[in-house]
């Protein structure tokens, strides 16, 4: 099984994308999608990405839900900042946090989450010091942002642990 599908999750995702793009589940499309998914799985083997094993599906779902809620909340906050306009310009600033994540994929996921959330933007990660530099739009109290990053870090460590 491993020799045929070196990256089962990736292959399943590719097959799903193919079916969605074609908008059909006809046998022909299915066979073509399976061939493509297997072939591209082998191609990915050449790129040799870092493997990690996410566990605990339930925890992942709960984490995703929490992130979605955070994104909605910070969407509203950023809208308020923009509409408030020039009367009270945002107090933006840079923050540094020390992280303790070794898994590359967990780091990438954290970067995506932080940047996709309006109000925080990932800027730089120093591998040797393991410290992250990020920019915050509305720095009312920086403690909250640092706590948010720490919370994400703990959840990711648990998921990828």
């Amino acid at each position: 099984m491993r020799t045929w599908f070196p990256y089962p999750l990736l292959s399943i995702a590719l097959l799903l994308i193919w079916l969605l793009l074609n908008q059909s589940v006809a046998p022909g499309t299915f066979v073509m999608g399976t061939i493509l998914a297997t072939g591209l799985g082998w191609v990915t083997l050449k790129l040799s990405p870092v493997r990690s094993h996410p566990r605990r599906i339930l925890l992942t779902l709960r984490f995703g839900f929490a992130v979605a809620l955070d994104i909605i909340r910070s969407n509203l906050a950023v809208i308020a900042v923009i509409l408030r306009g020039r009367r009270r310009p945002p107090s933006s600033g840079f923050l540094t946090v020390d992280l303790d994540i070794d898994d590359e994929n967990a780091l990438a996921l954290l970067a995506c989450i932080l940047t996709a959330t309006p109000g925080t933007a990932w800027l730089e990660y120093d591998r040797r010091r393991k410290s992250l530099l990020f920019h915050v739009l509305d720095m009312e109290n920086e403690r909250v942002w640092i706590d948010t990053v720490k919370r994400y870090e703990a959840a990711l460590k648990e998921i990828f642990g």
């Binding site: 969407n75 950023v78 809208i79 923009i82 945002p90 933006s92 840079f94 940047t115 996709a116 959330t117 309006p118 109000g119 925080t120 933007a121 920019h135 739009l137």
Partner: peptide
Amino acid sequence: YERLHAPTL
């Protein structure tokens, strides 16, 4: 750096 937050909306 402030503008960097706008497109995420």
